[in-house]
Simulated assay, not measured.
Amino acid sequence: MFSRVTHGNESTVTEFLLAGLTQQPELQLPLFLLFLAIYLLTALGNLGMVTLIGLSSHLHTPMYYFLCSLSLIDLCQATVIIPKMLVSFVADKNITSYPECMTQLYCFIVLVIAECYMLAVMAYDRYVAICQPLLYNVIMSPHVCALFSVAVYIWAITGSTIHTGLILRLDFCKNNMINHYFCDVIPLLEISCSSTYVNELLLLILSSFNIMTPFTAILASYIFIILNILHISSREGRAKAFSTCSSHLGAVGMFYGSTIFMYMQPSSVNSMGQGKVSSVFYTIIVPMLNPLIYSLRNKDVKVALRKILNCRKCS
Rank of each mutant, 00 (worst) to 15 (best):
N137A: 06
I113Q: 09
M140Q: 07
T103K: 09
M140T: 02
L134R: 09
V144S: 00
E115W: 10
V112S: 11
I139Y: 09
I95C: 07
Y124W: 10
E115T: 11
D92Y: 10
C107I: 14
M140R: 12
I95E: 09
D92W: 12
L119A: 09
A91Y: 08
Y98M: 08
L111P: 15
A151H: 08
A129P: 03
E115K: 15
S97K: 04
Y98T: 05
L119W: 09
C145D: 00
Y117D: 05
Q132A: 09
K93H: 13
M122Q: 01
T103I: 14
F108N: 02
V144G: 01
N137F: 03
V150R: 04
V110P: 06
A129I: 04
I109K: 04
A151E: 00
L147K: 15
S141P: 02
Y124E: 10
T96P: 05
A151R: 10
C101D: 05
I139D: 15
P142I: 12
L105M: 15
C116S: 15
T103Q: 07
V138H: 12
I113W: 03
L105W: 07
L147H: 11
I130M: 02
P142Q: 12
L119Q: 10
L105D: 11
L134F: 09
L147N: 10
C101W: 01
I139A: 11
S97W: 01
C107R: 14
P133H: 05
E100D: 05
V144T: 04
M118H: 03
M118L: 11
I130Y: 01
I130W: 02
Y106F: 13
V128A: 00
V90F: 06
F148Q: 05
T96E: 13
C107G: 12
A146D: 00
A151D: 07
L111Q: 15
L119N: 07
N137P: 04
I130S: 03
L111N: 15
M122V: 01
V110N: 06
M102N: 12
T103N: 04
S149P: 00
I109L: 07
C116K: 06
Y153F: 14
V138M: 12
A146R: 07
N137C: 04
